[in-house]
């Protein structure tokens, strides 16, 4: 059991995400497609996006695109720049680092980042 962001790919089981109210079971690892994301509804009504990259690593950041207010980041395409994985918003294409939620195209923008574990 581990709580690293960029969770190593060897584990199978249930993906859990840590929120302010504790660990939340999200889905089975098999539910995630490499290179894409899914949205998660959090107990407080907020949304997270959980991704699996092409190597099988897992990441979770906020799902609501700060530039448009729409819950769409889970639908963005993954990429990597300088070895750092990111998701590009499907609406206006700003990129957000999967490791920490920071926007790579606008220093003033960021989304939350969530620790993950597989149990």
């Amino acid at each position: 059991m581990t709580t690293l962001t960029g969770l190593a790919p060897v584990l199978t089981g249930t993906v859990e995400l840590r929120t302010s109210s504790g660990w939340l079971a999200v889905c089975a690892t098999a539910d995630l497609e490499p290179g894409r994301g899914v949205a998660v509804l959090l107990p407080d009504g907020a949304q997270a996006a959980v991704f699996k990259d092409s190597t099988g690593r897992l990441y979770a950041i906020g799902n609501v695109d700060p530039f448009t207010g729409a819950g769409v980041l889970c639908h963005g395409l993954l990429g990597s720049a300088g070895g750092r994985p990111y998701v590009a918003s499907p609406l206006l294409k700003q990129r957000f680092a999967l490791a920490d939620g920071r926007c790579l195209d606008d220093d003033a923008a960021a989304v939350a980042s969530y620790p993950l574990r597989v149990s």
């Binding site: 302010s20 530039f67 448009t68 207010g69 003033a108 923008a109 989304v111 939350a112 980042s113």
Partner: peptide, 11 residues
Amino acid sequence: LPVALTETVPV
């Protein structure tokens, strides 16, 4: 939709 460039979530 409300737009806010940063989002803070207690972790």
